[in-house]
Each structure stands twice: as structure tokens, then as C-alpha cells.
Design a protein around this nucleic acid. Structure first.
Length: 200
DNA sequence: AGACCTTTGAAGCAT
DNA sequence: ATGCTTCAAAGGTCT
């Protein structure tokens, strides 16, 4: 649910994040906490939808309803289980699958950064305006809108992104972005001329 | 089917 | 330490 990201954002300042010792559900609204606990305590979605790996591992917690939990998702596991054993088993199994040429298991993806979270929330608004259809064009607009945000508005997403990273670290201790590094065949060999990076 | 485009930010990697 | 590269999402377009 897209509105849910706003709930989290509004609660960020009151959540008093304890970096390094984050209880996963501390910053969830009470109703969502209960829903999450139900899910992670064996409340598995038994519907037979096939997971397409298009949903980010963390996104279900933050943006989607339980129907988006893939049956094999680590979110379906009890969070009380030792995290390092979970990660070891997860990583070990994936490594074994990889060695055997099995690729059905979705890879653990990078946590979304602040701008990505902003994009997910705001994209549909740009689409509703109907000016652009292509994602590249929509993303250009989103980039401009991002820069037009106030510092406090942006900080909402930076905080949320930080919590995503913490949650990701807890769920996948030992995971590194290196796992997904260099898997794509491309990348474009040279930067487009005349482009001026706007980050800063 | 899969890369490309386009954005920002995080992290890996090379120097 | 610094700077470059890759990936994260999205989905229409192109090969």
C-alpha cells in the first residue's frame, strides 16, 4: 500500500531509531506490526501465485500487503530464528543452486535508496498526470521533483532508506552488494556527452 | 527475451 | 582517499 510509506515517514521522528540495535517492528504502526507478526509466525500465504522476483525483498514490508509475500520469502520465516543461521542457510543454498545451475531462487537485491523509495511512492502521480508514459521520461520528472523537495521532505526518505538498510542487514547478515555485482551483461561503455551530473 | 533509457543514492572496485 | 562503475525500480521501446 503506497499510503503506508507515508505512515512510516510520519512516524520516523517519533520512532527514535536505535541504530545498530533495531527491533524490526519497532517503527511499524501497531496494526501493521500485528500483520507482520502474523506473517512471520507461520501465517503463510498459500495462494498459488508464482513469484516473479519483481518485488523487492524489503518492499513487501514497507509498501505492499501480505499478498505480495512470495511463498519462499524470508519474510515468511519466524524472525525469532537466529539470523546468522538463516543467512548462512540462505546464502549456502543459493551458492549450491548457483553451482548446480539452478536459478529459480530469487537473488537478494539491494535495499532501496531514498530516491528509489520516493520514486515508488510518487511515480503513479506523474503517470496520472498523463504527460509521460515512458519510465525514462517519468524518471526525469521525478528527478526534478526530488530536487524541488524541501530538506525535511527529503529527510523523510533518507530516514526510511536508512531503516531499509538496517532491516536488510538484519535479514541478510553478511550479504553484500557484491553478490549482484557484474551480473548484467551491459553496461554502456561511455557516458553520454553533454550530461551534467546534478548530484551534490 | 532481454538490453536500453533515465533518475539518485549506496556500495563495490580500481587506482 | 578518491573517482568511476554497477545496481536498485519502472515500463515502453528497440534489437
Amino acid at each position: 500500500m503506497l499510503h503506508y510509506i507515508n505512515e512510516i515517514g510520519l512516524n520516523l521522528s517519533a520512532a527514535a531509531p536505535t541504530c545498530g540495535h533495531l527491533e524490526m517492528v519497532d517503527w511499524f504502526p501497531p496494526q501493521q506490526q500485528q500483520q507482520f507478526l502474523n506473517l512471520t509466525s507461520g501465517g503463510r500465504d498459500t495462494r498459488s501465485h508464482t513469484h516473479t522476483s519483481s518485488v523487492h525483498p524489503l518492499v513487501p514490508l514497507l509498501l505492499y500487503s501480505d499478498t505480495h509475500f512470495p511463498p519462499s520469502s524470508p519474510y515468511s520465516r519466524p524472525i525469532g530464528a537466529p539470523a546468522d543461521r538463516q543467512a548462512d542457510a540462505h546464502s549456502d543454498t543459493r551458492a549450491r543452486d548457483h553451482a548446480n545451475g539452478v536459478t529459480s531462487r530469487p537473488a537478494v537485491k539491494k535495499p532501496l535508496n531514498a530516491f528509489m523509495l520516493y520514486m515508488k511512492e510518487t511515480r503513479h502521480k506523474v503517470l496520472q498526470e498523463g504527460r509521460e508514459r515512458e519510465s525514462a521520461a517519468v524518471n526525469r520528472i521525478l528527478g526534478r521533483k526530488w530536487h524541488a523537495l524541501s530538506r525535511s521532505e527529503q529527510s523523510k526518505y533518507y530516514d526510511l532508506a536508512q531503516k531499509e538498510r538496517l532491516l536488510h542487514t538484519q535479514l541478510y547478515p553478511g550479504w553484500s552488494a557484491r553478490e549482484n555485482y557484474g551480473k548484467r551483461k551491459r553496461k554502456r561503455s561511455q557516458q553520454p556527452t553533454g550530461s551534467c551530473p546534478t548530484s551534490g
